[in-house]
């Protein structure tokens, strides 16, 4: 039998068996999680988003060419942030020119947020930085909660390097 006919027959067998399964068990429900539940960007996100794990990010902590950008509010930042991170709160949905100048000097910028507040902030910051011409911007997978959970270096207090 021709290979295409064989393939069609096999597929039809699968479809028939699947439909019989639906008839017996019903159609399973498939609810995708809320968009901010896992630090995954909204599906309407435009642009390419790259991710970095906590393990890889810590390896870059002492690299002067890497900057961390905390997208949370100033009070969340002061309660505890990644060592050396800049605070770039997304409450006004913009990044000041002074902060952009500090971030442009970096080879890579890693943004992060708090998943409980909705990870859209770090992704939004990523897109703003990319639009401002900063090429290599990545989002920290798991955000600050994962960083703390793994016991990585953090500090409290106001942003010393912020303009």
């Amino acid at each position: 039998m021709d290979v295409v006919k064989e393939a069609v027959l096999i597929s039809l067998l699968g479809v028939v068996a699947g439909l019989m399964s639906v008839a017996l068990r019903g159609v399973p429900r498939a609810e995708a999680p809320p968009e901010s539940a896992s630090c995954a960007p909204p599906s309407s996100t435009q642009g390419f988003v790259r991710w970095v794990t906590v393990e890889d990010a810590q390896g870059l902590l002492n690299d002067p060419a890497i900057r961390f950008a905390d997208a949370r509010s100033p009070s969340e930042y002061e309660a505890g942030h990644i060592l050396g991170a800049l605070n770039v709160p997304m409450d006004k949905d913009m990044v000041s020119e002074a902060l952009l100048e500090r971030l442009r000097s970096a080879r890579t910028v890693i943004t992060y947020c708090d998943t409980q507040s909705g990870c859209a902030r770090s992704v939004r910051l990523t897109h703003l930085l990319q639009a401002a011409g900063i090429g290599d911007v990545r989002v920290l997978k798991g955000g600050m909660p994962e960083w703390n959970r793994q016991g990585r270096p953090a500090e409290a207090g106001p942003c010393r390097e912020c303009p």
Binding site: I10, G14, V15, A17, G18, L19, V22, R25, V27
Partner: peptide, 19 residues
């Protein structure tokens, strides 16, 4: 669309198994 995901999930594994 989410409505299609359930139907596809019911059919695809059978095609995998027969293949």
């Amino acid at each position: 669309p989410e409505a299609w995901a359930g139907s596809l999930a019911s059919i695809l594994p059978w095609i995998e198994a027969f293949a």
